[in-house]
C-alpha cells in the first residue's frame, strides 16, 4: 500500500489545468501552492502495480512539465538486494 508525495511543476500557464487533470486521477490528492507555480501531489495506492500505473499516467499528462518524488513509503517488498555478491 504505497504512499508517495511529489512536487509537480506545470508547463507554463497550465497550473490550473494540471490541478484539474490530477484531481481526475484515482488515488490522488492535490495541494496547490498559493504563490508559486507548483503543486504537491499525494498518492495513496492499493499496491505497487497501481502505483506504477498512476505514476505513468501522471508523467504523461500534457500540462505536466516535471514530477519530482519527495517522499515514499513503499512497503517492505520494495527492498532490493543491496548486499555484495
Amino acid at each position: 500500500m504505497p504512499v508517495f508525495s511529489y512536487l509537480a511543476h506545470p508547463v507554463e500557464g497550465a497550473k490550473d489545468k494540471l490541478m484539474n487533470e490530477v484531481k481526475e486521477c484515482d488515488h490522488c490528492e492535490v495541494i496547490p501552492a498559493d504563490n508559486e507555480d507548483i503543486l504537491i501531489i499525494l498518492t495513496d495506492t492499493p499496491d505497487d502495480d497501481a502505483e506504477k500505473k498512476l505514476w505513468k499516467k501522471l508523467t504523461n499528462l500534457k500540462s505536466m512539465r516535471s514530477l519530482d518524488m519527495i517522499f515514499g513509503h513503499a512497503g517492505e517488498d520494495a527492498r532490493k538486494n543491496i548486499k555484495k555478491g
Partner: peptide
C-alpha cells in the same frame, strides 16, 4: 498509521518546496 504516513509525505513535500521557494504557502493543506 496510514494517515500519519500521508501527513508525513505532505509535510516532506511542503518542506522541500519551502527550501526551493522560500515564502511559498499551501493554505489548502
Amino acid at each position: 498509521r496510514r494517515k500519519f504516513i500521508k501527513s508525513a509525505a505532505v509535510n516532506s513535500a511542503i518542506a522541500t518546496a519551502v527550501a526551493l521557494f522560500p515564502g511559498i504557502s499551501f493554505s489548502a493543506w
